[in-house]
Design a binder for these strands. Structure first.
Lengths: 112, 112
DNA sequence: GCAAACAAGTTTGTTATACAAACCAGTCTG
DNA sequence: CAGACTGGTTTGTATAACAAACTTGTTTGC
């Protein structure tokens, strides 16, 4: 009924993973903000390859989660949206990466 | 307009990640099948902590993706559902883990 | 021997999500 | 000054995850 090894019990950090960051598009956005500190909408648009609508809505979610700070300015007469990771965002991103690494590591090998 | 570092260009393996496996519940299911080779529905139910409905539907998706093989038997008079990873499933799982590890590694450090 | 409880799942319904397409306000250009 | 372009936001749709309700059959209590 049960498998041979009744003791099998995996660590399950993956079930508690931060869903906000787990979404690949948002991971990517956060990864960019993580390394560049601050960027504008169009930079992220180009780099991530997302559509504008998508980028906008993911940024909205990240803002709502408190992970990014959105500031709207004018650069001359042109509106410009400036994005940066908040401290919380940086912390959450580090935590996500650590927890995923842990989930991905240490799996017994199983059999072929 | 753009951030200071115009060269910034991350590897973006994360955008091509296998969405079937990326879902934590399914990752967990596959991880169990990966190590135990074969298990029944109730074993997975207990181990994963998913509800029956959820487990059933995730298994359905994994089957449709060709990642798990579902066999229904009777154990005496009691119906029993036997699950195992297919070869494709094992390969995909390995690939997913490799690709996520890569995405999680090598991020420049950014600034505080 | 039949009613109620249980086993092993599946189906259904709700809520949320990702995504692209359409839209919009304002600016620049020929 | 008409049309194209910038820099986005809003809207619509299809999928998804999840829990709750249901189903088919079996076992147990009375």
């Amino acid at each position: 009924m049960s498998p041979k090894n009744k003791e099998t019990q995996l660590n399950q950090p993956i079930t508690e993973v931060d869903r906000i960051i787990h979404e690949p598009a948002r991971y990517l956005i956060m990864a960019y903000l993580y390394v560049v500190e601050s960027a504008d909408f169009l930079f992220l648009l180009r780099q991530t390859g997302l559509t504008k609508g998508n980028l906008s809505s993911h940024l909205g979610k990240l803002e709502k989660a408190g992970y990014v700070d959105i500031k709207k300015k004018f650069s001359g007469k042109i509106p410009q949206t400036l994005l940066r990771l908040t401290r919380d965002g940086r912390v959450a991103f580090d935590a996500y990466r650590a927890s995923m690494k842990k989930a991905l590591a240490d799996l017994p090998n199983g059999r072929k």
